[in-house]
Simulated assay, not measured.
Amino acid sequence: MGFGQFLAAPEIKLKVITYRDVFQNTAQETSRFGEEYEKSSAVIKLDPKDIAKLSIKDGETVIVKNSSGKVVVTAVKSDYEESHSGVAYMVNSPWSNSLVPDETGGTGVPKFKNFEVTVQGARGEKATGISEIL
C-alpha cells in the first residue's frame, strides 16, 4: 500500500457548454443504445490546462457532478486552438442532460449552455452506461 492511495483526486470547478455534434447524431440514428453512440456521447472536452490540474491523461474517465446529477465520462483534450481553461464542452446527450439544473430563472427553459460542475479523476471507473441514466 502506498501513501498516494489515501489522497483524494484533485477536483476542479468548470462551466459546461453543451453543443450538437454531427458524428454523435449519426451514431444516435444508427442505435441510440449502441456502443458507438455511448462512446461519442459520454465525453467531456477539457482544456489541456484543466487536464493537468486534474492529474489525468487524455482518454481517462472523470466524475462530473453537481446538485442535479453525477456521471462518469471520458475526458478528452479539446482540439480548440484557443485556451479555454475553466470551460468544458459536452455534446447534447443523456450524460450532459443529467447535469442540467432544474432552475430556469422563470423562463421555463433550462440552462443547457452554461452550468457549473465539479470534475475529478475517476481512476479506472467505466463511463456511466446509458441504461444507468435512463
Rank of each mutant, 00 (worst) to 15 (best):
K111T: 11
L46T: 03
T107F: 09
K49I: 01
V64I: 13
E60H: 02
M90R: 10
S67H: 12
G34L: 08
P110W: 06
D50E: 01
D79T: 11
H84P: 12
E81N: 11
I44L: 06
K49T: 07
V71F: 10
V62F: 09
K57S: 05
K57P: 02
I56N: 03
S41R: 06
V43P: 03
N92I: 11
Q24S: 02
A75M: 01
N25M: 03
A88M: 13
V100H: 01
V109M: 09
I51L: 09
E36Y: 04
E103C: 04
K70N: 14
E36N: 10
E82S: 06
G34Q: 03
A88D: 12
N25F: 01
K77E: 15
I63A: 10
S96P: 09
T104A: 09
P48I: 00
K53D: 09
N66M: 14
V87W: 10
P94A: 13
Y89S: 15
K77M: 08
I44G: 02
V87G: 00
E103Q: 09
M90K: 11
F33M: 13
T26N: 05
A88Q: 14
V71A: 05
E29M: 02
A42Y: 03
V76E: 14
V109E: 04
E36G: 01
Q28R: 11
T74V: 15
P101L: 12
S93T: 08
T30V: 15
A42C: 12
S31M: 09
K57V: 02
P94K: 11
S40T: 13
W95K: 10
E36T: 13
A42H: 06
N97I: 04
P101C: 14
G108Q: 07
M90D: 12
N97K: 05
G69M: 12
D102K: 12
D79P: 00
Y80E: 15
I44K: 00
V73H: 09
S83Q: 07
G86Q: 11
E36A: 15
V62I: 11
E60V: 02
Q24C: 07
G86A: 10
V43F: 04
T107L: 10
P101K: 11
I44P: 02
V76F: 12
K57I: 00
E81V: 14
T74N: 09
V62T: 00
A88I: 13
P48N: 05
S67T: 12
P101S: 13
G59T: 01
D79S: 13
Y37I: 00
G105M: 07
S55F: 00
E35S: 13
K65I: 00
S98D: 09
E29R: 09
S41Q: 01
I51A: 00
H84N: 13
V109K: 09
S83M: 03
S83L: 04
V62N: 07
P110C: 01
K77T: 15
I63W: 02
T107M: 07
E29P: 05
T26C: 00
E35L: 07
H84K: 15
T30W: 03
F33I: 03
K39G: 00
S68M: 14
K111R: 14
S68H: 07
